[in-house]
Amino acid sequence: METKVVWDGKMQFTGTTPSNFNIVMDAVPEHGGENKGPAPMELIPVALGGCTGMDVISILNKMKEKVEHFEMRITTERATEHPKVYTKVHIEYIFKGENLNEENIKKAIELSQNKYCSVSAILRGTAEVTYSYKIL
């Protein structure tokens, strides 16, 4: 696999993924950018949500759970010194659906966090990754 990242001027870069999708990244004006895209570190929690979210939905679909709405709210803390890695990450999984089985939801999240989600595994190298869930 190869990812390509090209400088577009000032602090803007465009990354092209191996599946040929483009992501524009930029810095805020006080760091020399024009705020035309997310900062690279902002994409990490987004990648985490996508990774674990896809796992959880896939597992719940196999369990025949009828999820009507699913979202995650991810909060982070970063180190104050460079390289300013994430030190704490918390994922709140929020579900809405018809007669959702709490044990199945708990199992799907645990499988994602402890077995399948590669982004969580990477983050655990520097951060305390925690999670909670609620069913509306």
Rank of each mutant, 00 (worst) to 15 (best):
H31V: 03
A47S: 15
M11N: 01
M11H: 05
V28H: 08
G53P: 04
V46L: 13
D55H: 01
P40N: 09
E30V: 07
I23M: 11
K64G: 00
H31C: 02
A47T: 00
E71S: 15
G49F: 08
F21P: 03
N22F: 02
N35G: 04
V46T: 12
S19W: 02
A47H: 05
L43Q: 03
T14D: 03
G49C: 02
M25Y: 09
T14V: 15
T17S: 15
F21H: 15
V24K: 12
P29Q: 02
M41H: 09
H69R: 13
F21A: 00
G37K: 06
E68S: 12
E68C: 06
F70R: 00
I44W: 01
P45D: 03
N35Y: 08
N22T: 11
N20R: 10
M54A: 15
P18T: 07
P18D: 08
N22S: 12
A47V: 01
I44G: 02
T17W: 06
G33E: 01
N35C: 04
K66G: 01
P18Q: 08
A39F: 05
F21Y: 14
A39D: 10
S19E: 07
K10V: 08
E68R: 06
G15C: 09
D55P: 08
F13M: 12
N35S: 11
V28L: 14
V28K: 10
L60T: 10
G15P: 06
G49P: 04
F13Q: 09
K62F: 03
F21W: 04
E30G: 04
E65R: 05
M41G: 06
E65D: 08
E65Y: 07
E42S: 07
N61P: 01
T14I: 14
Q12I: 05
F21E: 05
D26V: 10
M11W: 03
S19D: 08
E34T: 15
D26Q: 02
M11Q: 14
L60P: 13
E68L: 14
Q12G: 14
M54W: 04
F70C: 05
E65H: 04
E65A: 11
L43T: 12
L60N: 10
T16E: 13
K36E: 11
K64A: 11
P40H: 07
G50V: 02
F13T: 14
P40V: 14
V56Q: 00
E34R: 13
K64D: 05
P40K: 09
I23S: 01
K10T: 02
T16D: 08
K10I: 09
E71H: 15
I44L: 15
L43D: 06
G33R: 06
K36L: 14
I23Q: 00
V56F: 03
M54Y: 14
N20K: 13
E68Q: 14
G33Y: 02
T17M: 10
M54D: 09
K10G: 00
F70M: 01
G49Y: 00
K10P: 00
G32F: 09
N35E: 12
K10W: 07
A47C: 07
L48E: 00
T14Q: 09
N35M: 03
A39P: 02
E71W: 05
D26G: 03
Q12F: 08
K36F: 00
G15Y: 02
E65N: 09
P45Q: 00
E30P: 02
A27G: 05
